[in-house]
Design a protein around this nucleic acid. Structure first.
Length: 426
RNA sequence: GGAGACGUAUCGAAGUGGUCGUAACGAGCUUGACUCGAAAUCAAGUUGUCCGCAAGGGCACGGGGGUUCGAAUCCCCCCGUCUCCGCCA
């Protein structure tokens, strides 16, 4: 969440930001609740001070009458306090639930716009691949080569689940290790994280585990959820801690399964592996000083580019429009790789995403560091995809397909796969 | 999953209803003294947070409730750690 103490001084700025993000948050109501809450809290604290004073008078030996009078006085304050606290709790609960919905300040450099069409392409790399023959999409290729099996996935687990088979399995493992090696070279500490996290961690990161539109699977009766990304488990790692300034930046990379409900996500653009309920992903995560976060955001993006250019894929980099930013994000860059099987004659499809969430998540998760002046301050937190295996496989299969339906393995992956081609069995 | 023990500051740990949350004691860390320097010794300082210009006050002893004029301390629920048993890759 944002710093709630700034809610009045930065009122106009916050309003403008909500507007730019095309969100529906009633700031005036939140501010009214804030004032109400403050006034009530002040009253309660004054009353508590009186109660403590009263109790302190009873520490020593006292005449019975004197003591009885004090106890009587205490009883009165107790019931008054209970009443006021109950009223306060009600207001406080409403206030904090609404306050959490205020989005992070967006970067001044983020393009203003309503939806993904307004995202700004800031870089193009490589030549989009076109074939002399009619290109297939990864679904057709995968079924012909017997490396992807969507029908069995649907039968056993349901729609949008899949099996990876044969050399497809080795391809995924190779990609995973290829990306890991690049990320490690940049000084990240590797993790394999839980695939489950508590709801409080989810919401601290900015995911809403409840409700119709939630993309999260909750595990009934446990207070936990299946994670949609290792951003959640890496970001929760230091929750409620004060970090040593000398330990920053902390650079982590985590491999996890990712589960997403994707309710309503259907159609041509969500076909096959592109949008699924379960996939694996290697995620990068950085905790750093506030003044460093812009630079680290660019570093994450450049590592992502290193991974995808290394695979010989054409891509573009997109600067996400304010209306398409998640609430915690201050700025977000996506890499969209060229996918020849997408649309009529190939299109770009998102393969990575990196967000600078500044101190927004750190406030909710209470992650701080001690600065040189002795004060504790909130860290900045950034996340970025190293490789989402399923989508990278889509891009590789479609770009490296041959006319006979076989797939050439990108040269940089061959040391990891141990083969340079996937062709029909038999 | 069952039974028991435990959860207090950076760590160990005392406290079992008011004098104990700038929390005994021990260690660590920081600063200073002593020293040629270090060790040892001595001294001082070492939780976070909220309201407030300040003075001052509120809150927090794993988390949440409750009892009480007053809770680290008594009761209930939850979480975590350890030990034993069960189960198991």
């Amino acid at each position: 969440m944002i710093d709630i103490r700034e809610i009045k001084e930065r009122r106009e700025e916050i309003k403008k930001n909500i507007e730019n993000r095309f969100m529906n948050v009633d700031l005036d109501r939140i501010i009214a609740l804030y004032d109400q809450r403050s006034a009530m809290l002040k009253e309660i604290e004054a009353l508590r001070a009186k109660r403590n004073e009263n109790a302190a008078k009873m520490k020593g030996k006292l005449e019975k009458e004197e003591r009885d009078a004090l106890i009587e006085e205490g009883k009165k304050m107790k019931s008054e306090l209970a009443e006021k606290e109950a009223a306060f709790n009600e207001v406080d609960l409403l206030f904090s639930s609404l306050a959490k919905t205020i989005p992070n300040y967006a970067s001044k450099d983020a393009p203003i716009g309503k939806e993904d069409k307004d995202n700004l392409a800031i870089k193009f790399y490589g030549e989009p691949k076109h074939f002399t023959f009619k290109a297939k999409d990864h679904v057709a290729l995968g079924e012909d080569l017997d490396i992807l099996d969507f029908d069995s996935g649907a039968k056993v687990a349901g729609q949008k689940f899949y099996y990876i088979k044969n050399k497809g399995v080795i391809l995924q493992m190779a990609l995973e290790r290829y990306a890991m090696d690049i990320v490690l070279k940049h000084g990240f500490t590797p993790f394999i994280t839980p695939d489950i996290a508590k709801e409080e961690i989810l919401s601290g990161i900015g995911f809403n585990p409840r409700g119709e539109e939630s993309n999260i699977y909750t595990i009934e009766g446990t207070g936990t959820c299946l994670v949609g990304t290792a951003e959640i488990t890496l970001g929760g790692y230091y929750s409620n801690m004060i970090l040593d300034k000398k330990d920053l930046p902390i650079k982590m990379t985590g491999l996890s399964h990712c589960f997403r409900r994707e309710a309503g996500g259907a159609g041509q653009y969500s076909k096959g592996l592109y949008r699924v309920h379960q996939f694996s992903k290697l995620e990068m995560f950085i905790y750093c000083l506030p003044e460093e976060s812009d630079a680290f955001h660019k570093e994450i993006l450049s590592i992502e580019e290193e991974i995808f250019s290394g695979l010989g894929l054409a891509y573009r980099v997109v600067d996400t429009a304010t209306g398409d930013l998640g609430a915690p994000a201050y700025r977000k860059f996506d890499i969209e790789a060229w996918m020849p099987g997408r649309g009529e004659d190939g299109e770009y499809g998102e393969v990575t995403s990196t967000s600078n969430c500044t101190d927004y998540q750190a406030r909710s998760l209470n992650i701080r560091y001690r600065d040189d002046d002795g004060k504790v301050k909130f860290v900045h937190m950034l996340n970025g995809t190293a490789v989402a295996l399923s989508r990278a496989i889509v891009a590789i299969m479609e770009n490296y397909q041959n006319e006979d339906g076989s797939i050439t393995i990108p040269p940089s992956l061959v040391p990891y796969t141990g083969f340079d081609r996937i062709e029909k069995l038999k």
